[in-house]
Design a protein around this nucleic acid. Structure first.
Lengths: 351, 351
DNA sequence: CAATTTTTGGCAACAGCTTGCCACCTTCTC
DNA sequence: GAGAAGGTGGCAAGCTGTTGCCAAAAATTG
C-alpha cells in the first residue's frame, strides 16, 4: 500500500543487507502517538477503556508504523499463546488430513494458529508432546494412542479434546451405527459370512467397530470372523487380502479405506474379482475412495467437520462463556456410501 | 513415572479443580539448585560455561520439577521463536500433503515446530500471513501465488524459501525434464498431437511446463495445443476432459494428477476409453495416482523430499554456519512413471 | 461553586528467560 | 608469596506487552 519508506527523509539504516529490519514495538507507537505504552495496549485490546480520539490517533500511528503486536510478548504476560496443537498419529493418512483441514479452518477463523505434530503412532511421542508443548493453549488429539488412564491424567492438566475416543471432552464419529447399515446392505445382497479386517491393536475405534459388528451380525444370524491387526496403510492391504480370502467370508468390512484400497489392489493382482467374488466395505470415505478401482463402498464420515467441531469445543473450553455450559461430547453422524465394491454374494453356498 | 505428588507432604493446592497447575519457572529451578537464575539458563543452553557439578545439580533439579523452558519467554529475549510457517495454497491438495509431511519431519528433527497456514489460493492472504506472522522465524512458500516482485520484496525482510518458484532461495522440482520424457513416451506410442491441460493462471510451474512442452514438441514435429486454465482439483476434471476431447489431440499432458484423475472419471462417464481413445499423463504422482482407474502415467516428483530440502535450506539460512555457504537453489530430479493411462495412439489418422 | 463521581491515561511491576559485565575464587608462574 | 590468568557464577538490564493502582481531568450533582 504505502511505500512511505522511499521518502527522502531516509531515517535509520534502512535495508540492512541481509538483515531483518527491527519490528516496531508498542513503545514506538506510543511515542508517535504521544501517549504511554499502557494506553496503546488498552487502545488496541480494550477499546472501551480509552477515549475515542486518543484511540484513533493510536490506531493511526500503529498503522503508519505497520505495527503488529508480538504474540510472544502477549503470551508471556497474559499466559496464552493463541495456538493449539493438533496431534495426529500419522500425517501420511488422508483421514487425518481432513481433520487437519477442518481444524485449521476453524482455528484460523478464531484467530488461532495451528501447530501440527506427527506422533508417529507412538504413545511416547504423544505424551512427550503433551508435556513439552508449552507453546499451545490446548490440544486436539486425533485418534490418540494413549490409554484411558493416561488420557485422564493428561486432561487434568492440559485442555484437550479427543477425536474418536471415549473420553471427555471428545468428538466421536458414529461409525458403529453405519456398521449396522453396512451389515444390512451386505445381508440384503445375500452375504452370510463377513470378515472384519481390523486396524491397529491400540485403536479404540477399531475395537468398537468389531464389537458392534460381532454383536449385530449374530442378531441377524450372520457369521463373523476377524483378522488383523493391520497397520492402516495401503501396503498392509496385501497381507489383509490374502488372509481374508482364506476365511471363506464373502464380504469384508475393513477398518479403514486405506487398508481397503490396498486390499482391492491385491485382490485384483490375484485375479479375485470385486465384487463378484468378494465384497469390500471400507470406512472413512477418504480422498481416493471414489476413484479407486472399483470405487469403494464405504462408511462416510464428516471428518472435516469433526475437526471443526473439535476445535470449537476446545475453544469454548479455553474461553468459557459465563452462561453457556461446555459441550463435553459431540457425535458425528455417518452413513453408508454404496459404490461398486459391494455386490451380490457369490452363490457357491450350495455348490 | 514418578507420582511424587501423592506423597503425604501435600504442599500447595494440588489438583486445582479444572485449573492448570502453574508451571515451574527458571527461578524455581534456581532456588532448588541453590544458584542464580542466570546460571540455570547457562547450564541448560551453554553447558560449557558452567562447572560440571553445578550443572548436574541444576539438571537434576530441573528434572525433578519437570521444568520445561517457556519457548515464549526464550523467544522474547533472544528474538527467535523456533517455529517456521509453511504456507500452502490449499491444504486439500495431496501434493502439499507430501510437502507438509517432509517439512514437518525435518523441522521436528531440528527441534522446530511447524505452523501450517492455508492461504486459500489467494495472494492477499499469503502476503498478510507473511507480514502478520511474527511468530515464525522463517517461511516455506509452497507454490506461492505472489508475483516475482512481491516475492523479492518480502524476501528482503523475511527469511524464506520457495518451492517451485524461480526465486532465491528456492527448491524447484525439475518437471520440465520429465516433460521431455513424457513426450518421448507419447511419440514412441505414435501420438502426434498432444494437448496441455493447464493449471491456475498464476502458477509458475504450469507456465513452465507449457513452455517446455511447446518447444520440445515442435522439435519432434509434434503438434500441441493448450486448454485451461483449470483449478487444480478433481472437480475441474470434467470441464477439462470435455474441452480436451474437442481438440483432436490423442494424448493429454495434464498440469497435475488431481486434474488428471478428474478427467479420467469424466472420460469414463462419457464412454471414452483411456488409453485406447486418449492417453493421459499426469504430474506429481500423488497419493491415488497408483490406484485410480486406470492407474495414471505420471511425472513422479520427490515431493516429500522437496519439503525436507526446503526446510534444510531455510534452517541453514536461519543458523548460518560461518564456513559453509548457503545453498540458494536445489533442483529435485523427476522421472516418468508409466502406468496404464497411456497407450498406443488410435490409428484413425488415415481413417 | 464546591463536592462527588466518572473518565482517562500514566507509572511501574510484572511475565520468564538471556546475556554483557563484573567480582570472586582458584591455579599457575616467576 | 605476590601478581597474572582463567574459570565460575551473580547482578541487573534487557526483550515486548499487560494490568492493577492511582492521580489528574472532566463531567455531574446539589
Amino acid at each position: 500500500m504505502d511505500t512511505t519508506t522511499s521518502g527522502p527523509g531516509d531515517e535509520g539504516p534502512a535495508d540492512t543487507p541481509g538483515g531483518v529490519e527491527k519490528m516496531p514495538t508498542i513503545r514506538d507507537v506510543a511515542k508517535l502517538a504521544g501517549v504511554a505504552t499502557s494506553t496503546v495496549s488498552r487502545a488496541l485490546s480494550n477499546p472501551a477503556r480509552v477515549n475515542r480520539y486518543t484511540r484513533e490517533r493510536i490506531v493511526e500511528a500503529a498503522a503508519q508504523l505497520n505495527y503488529v503486536p508480538s504474540s510472544q510478548a502477549q503470551g508471556l504476560s497474559n499466559g496464552r499463546t493463541n495456538a493449539v496443537a493438533v496431534l495426529v498419529p500419522d500425517i501420511t493418512n488422508p483421514f487425518y488430513f481432513d481433520i487437519i483441514r477442518g481444524a485449521q479452518h476453524q482455528l484460523k477463523a478464531a484467530g488461532y494458529t495451528q501447530v501440527l505434530v506427527d506422533t508417529e503412532e507412538s504413545s511416547e511421542m504423544e505424551l512427550e508432546a503433551l508435556h513439552r508443548m508449552r507453546s499451545a493453549d490446548g490440544f486436539i488429539l486425533a485418534a490418540s494412542r494413549l490409554t484411558d488412564a493416561q488420557l485422564a491424567e493428561v486432561s487434568k492438566t492440559q485442555p484437550l479434546v479427543t477425536i474418536n475416543r471415549a473420553s471427555t471432552p471428545s468428538v466421536v464419529i458414529d461409525t458403529p451405527s453405519a456398521i449396522v447399515q453396512a451389515l444390512e446392505h451386505l445381508a440384503s445382497l445375500g452375504h452370510r459370512r463377513v470378515c472384519y479386517v481390523s486396524g491397529p491393536a491400540t485403536s479404540w475405534s477399531s475395537q468398537k467397530r468389531w464389537e458392534v459388528l460381532d454383536e449385530e451380525s449374530s442378531l441377524r444370524g450372520m457369521e463373523t470372523c476377524r483378522i488383523g491387526p493391520y497397520a492402516p496403510k495401503t501396503t498392509s492391504g496385501a497381507a489383509a487380502a490374502d488372509a481374508a480370502t482364506r476365511t471363506g467370508a464373502t464380504a469384508c468390512i475393513v477398518f479403514n479405506d486405506l487398508l481397503a484400497i490396498g486390499m482391492l489392489q491385491r485382490l485384483r493382482e490375484r485375479g479375485i474379482r470385486v465384487p463378484e467374488d468378494v465384497s469390500i466395505v471400507g470406512c472413512d470415505d477418504i480422498f481416493g475412495a471414489d476413484f479407486c478401482n472399483p470405487p469403494l463402498t464405504t462408511i462416510a464420515s464428516p471428518i472435516e467437520q469433526a475437526g471443526r467441531v473439535a476445535v470449537t469445543m476446545l475453544l469454548s473450553q479455553l474461553n468459557p462463556v459465563p452462561g453457556a455450559t461446555i459441550r463435553q461430547r459431540a457425535v458425528m453422524p455417518t452413513h453408508l456410501t454404496i459404490r461398486a465394491s459391494t455386490g451380490p454374494a457369490p452363490d457357491n453356498v450350495h455348490g
